[in-house]
Design a protein around this nucleic acid. Structure first.
Length: 487
RNA sequence: GCCCGCAUCGUCUAACGGUUAGGACAUCACCCUUUCAAGGUGGAAACCAGGGUUCGAUUCCCUGUGCGGGUACCA
């Protein structure tokens, strides 16, 4: 895209409800917001929308913090950080919403309602049956005095927005102009009977008070935007810009959700993915950098990102792409840094890992792969895989024994410090046996690792040392010819 | 039912009316090679359909179709 980069600082927010672990879909939206703020030198605000008592999850907010922090999506204002508009947790702002709700009543933009769920349901069924949009019939609008008495006596009621006539329209940052006929829009509940606000009231009040300039949220909010616009108008406030970013779909093409088996984002951490790779992969869902290079650092993305370039169609998340991106990020790491990361991952001294880094760096997709690859080196004895053929395909028992013995005597004579020399000498043996290197060296792999694949085997010997290598070769030989049968 | 959004290779995407429709992942073949990888080269693979507008539509408009989202005292 050739348009100019947006440079006006944007104040944006991510406002999750702490009802469970964040998944990739949620976080991708958070990422776009964060990027919009960082790319424009603006502010990223975190706000917890916990107005639904029914869905309260103990510690849900902590998971949100941990997820964002792991990814490095730092917030300028919000819980645990504070800011000029604190508190940033909606349950602690309850009185505020009540106050603004009453202002709406006073101005005639909202009214109280005591309709029962049963009546509302019957009403909607009837409307649907007649082919009409389902919306509240304003049955209670003419009963305000009656309801006032009811409330004065301690009775409960909900507050509803009185949706104005006419049209609602806005120029969406990612979609262009969107229009709704207000006749289609329901008189939404603003304050619930338990006194808590609904999303619609809380989000508008907070976004205005917190001076949010761009509301970046998932496209599932498009249909309720007219309600929010009506609220801004009712309060006499200028609405922010809206950017409805596409949702992230699962392999089934349905919106990613917990109940659809979406992985928790933090699970990617325990599976051995790098934060930078996750960010790279998520950024590519609905946005793409100029040029052909799609492996990007977080800094690269911040430099290139513009919320105006986000496009409108939903994206299916492909785990294989993440794998490829993660692998590339691992390969791009300076060896010392990878040693450091793997040190933490394997709970080992990074310094001691350094010689092993060249052997694993090109070979792993996730950090966890390094555990698998290196475990034969770290374990004291060889753990043989269940279905490992030994001697392997195309090699006879005699040939395998010859090879193992040649290897053992060479190691005894020359040690293991010279992998290249060892390999060269052993290649002669392989040739004299009339074997393909491919088949023959598999014998050595199995002998040392208990499996036919792994890191380069002669380098592994150097790490194992002369003694351990010799011991493993002997043990492998005994698998072929038990000691009791040896002549 | 009603409303809204979306529509390029299997997937993520590029293209701002004129291109042999480009890249990445995945996939296939070959090369390299001590296993496995990595890397290199090459291949197969897409403009949802029908109408317009235009000298010219993947691109703009309309309709249809498909997919998705919303229709709660959840967000």
């Amino acid at each position: 895209m050739a348009h100019s980069h947006t440079t006006t600082p944007m104040r944006v927010r991510f406002a999750p409800s702490p009802t469970g672990a964040l998944h990739l879909g949620n976080v991708r939206t958070a990422l776009f917001s964060w990027l919009a703020a960082r790319a424009t030198g603006g502010d990223f605000i975190l706000r917890i929308e916990d107005t639904d008592q029914e869905r309260y999850v103990e510690g849900g907010d902590l998971t949100v913090f941990e997820t964002l922090r792991w990814l490095g999506l730092d917030w300028d204002e919000g819980p645990e950080v504070g800011g000029p508009h604190a508190p940033y947790v909606q349950s602690q702002r309850k009185a505020l919403y009540t106050e603004y709700g009453e202002k709406l009543v006073a101005a005639g933009h909202a009214y109280w309602c005591t309709c029962t769920p049963d009546r509302l349901e019957a009403m909607r069924l009837e409307q649907q049956h007649r082919g009409q949009p389902t919306r509240y019939d304003r049955h209670c609008l003419s009963r305000q005095d009656e309801i006032a008495t009811h409330r004065a006596a301690g009775g409960t009621a909900v507050l509803r927005l009185r949706m104005p006539e006419g049209m609602s329209a806005w120029d969406d940052v990612v979609r262009g102009r969107i229009e709704f006929s207000n006749a289609e829009i329901d008189d939404s509940v603003l304050l619930k009977s338990d006194g808590f606000p609904t999303y619609h009231l809380a989000v508008v009040v907070d976004d205005h008070l917190m001076e949010i300039t761009h509301v970046i949220r998932s496209e599932e909010w498009i249909p309720s935007t007219p309600k929010h616009l009506a609220l801004y108008a009712a309060f006499g406030w200028t609405p922010p810009a809206f950017a409805h970013v596409p949702i992230v779909l699962g392999p089934d093409k349905k919106k990613l959700s917990k109940r659809h088996g979406a992985k928790r984002l933090l699970d990617y951490r325990s599976d051995g993915y790098l934060p930078a790779a996750l960010i790279n992969a998520m950024a590519l869902l609905g946005w793409s950098p100029p040029g052909d290079e799609d492996i990007l650092s977080v800094d690269d993305i911040v430099k290139l990102f513009d919320i105006h370039d986000v496009h409108a169609s939903p994206a299916v998340f492909d785990p294989q792409r993440l794998d490829a991106i993660n692998a590339r990020h691992i390969r791009l790491l300076p060896p010392a840094e990878l040693a450091h990361i793997l040190g933490a991952w394997l709970d080992r001294d990074p310094e001691s890992l350094l010689p092993l880094i060249p052997l694993v760096q090109e070979r792993i997709t996730t950090l966890e792969d390094a555990s698998t690859l290196l475990s034969p080196i770290f374990s004291t004895a060889v753990i043989w895989g269940d279905d490992v053929a030994f001697p392997p395909k195309n090699v006879t028992v005699d040939q395998a024994i010859t090879l193992l013995d040649a290897c053992r005597s060479d190691v005894a004579a020359n040690g293991t410090a010279d992998p290249t020399g060892l390999r060269t000498r052993l290649t002669e043996t392989v040739t004299s046996l009339g074997l393909k290197p491919r088949d023959a060296f598999r014998v050595i792999y199995c002998a040392l690792f208990g499996q036919p694949t792994g890191i380069p085997v002669f380098d592994a010997m150097a790490v194992l040392g002369q003694e351990a290598t010799a011991a493993r070769l002997v043990a492998a030989r005994e698998r072929l010819v038990p000691a009791s049968e040896q002549v």
